[in-house]
């Protein structure tokens, strides 16, 4: 089943003096269970595409089917509902509420949930999501008591807690060191193996190669779209550990 079906999506930003064609006709489909990386230089339109996929923005023209629904003409409130129910976001800078415990951060989307969940259900689902990302022992820690990688894992738990059909990750490793980046990617890969559809924007080739498919944008158009053999992040992590050891040994030698 197609999660995303874009047909000739255009997005034009108009100001009084100039109009910019950010997307000039994007047509693509993404199937359930894919792990897609979107790449491209800055100004290529990948952020605009991500905003449209995330239902934060509406295309100027074209048709966008999300999970079978035509959302091109949805009202703001309906888009908000869609973001809550169907989408999960992971951001480069985590966007956790400060001075708020991990579990309360994860509960947040459920507070805006349509279904009448009880407080107990909200709490339990948030707890479960934090267990999935391996933070069962950090429920009451606030963001400034967590490391960067742990913060991003809280953010992933928050994105997963509504059991979304599509997980959107916008430069999820942009603020992390290379080892932590691999850990986060490893987590995304594992989620993908369990069936989660993931779209990730990144400008790092290394990171993009952990996906099954790389879509490269250029100047508002799809430049290339190819399926690849994904690298395994767990293996990369293990090799990474070896490199660390190597560095240490070299350090000792020199």
């Amino acid at each position: 089943m197609k999660i995303v079906d874009l047909k000739d999506i255009r997005r034009i930003y108009r100001t009084e003096s100039i109009s910019v064609d950010a997307l000039k006709g994007i047509t693509l489909q993404i199937e359930e269970g894919e792990f897609v990386a979107i790449m491209g230089p800055s100004g290529s339109g990948k952020s605009t595409l991500m905003n449209i996929l995330g239902c934060l923005d509406r295309p100027t023209s074209g048709r966008f089917l999300l999970n079978g629904e035509d959302v091109s003409a949805f009202s703001k409130d309906k888009l908000a509902k869609l973001r809550n129910r169907t989408l999960g976001f992971v951001f480069q800078s985590f966007h956790l509420l400060p001075r708020t415990s991990a579990i309360e951060n994860v509960e947040l989307p459920l507070l805006y949930h349509e279904e009448g969940l009880t407080w107990k259900e909200i709490h339990n689902r948030a707890k479960k999501a934090l267990e999935v990302v391996g933070l069962a022992d950090r429920l009451d820690h606030t963001p400034n008591e967590l490391s960067g990688g742990q913060r991003q894992r809280v953010a992933i738990a928050r994105a997963l807690v509504t059991e979304p059909a599509l997980l959107l990750a916008d430069e999820p490793t942009g603020n992390l060191d290379s080892k932590t980046s691999l850990e986060i990617i490893d987590m995304l890969q594992k989620l993908n193996k369990k069936g989660e559809t993931i779209i990730m924007v990144t400008h790092e080739h290394d990171i993009a190669h952990f996906a099954n498919r790389i879509i490269t944008l250029h100047d508002g158009l799809v430049k290339s779209d190819r399926a690849i053999e994904a690298k395994n992040a767990s293996d990369a992590l293990r090799n990474r550990v070896d490199e660390d050891e190597l560095e240490q040994i070299e350090g000792v030698l020199s």
């Binding site: 995330g54 934060l56 703001k76 409130d77 908000a80 509902k81 973001r83 809550n84 129910r85 976001f89 966007h95 509420l97 947040l108 989307p109 805006y112 949930h113 928050r158 509504t162």
Partner: peptide
Amino acid sequence: REVGLRLSVGARGK
């Protein structure tokens, strides 16, 4: 940023 986050996880303007 907090408002932006709330909107992105499904809060409506109201």
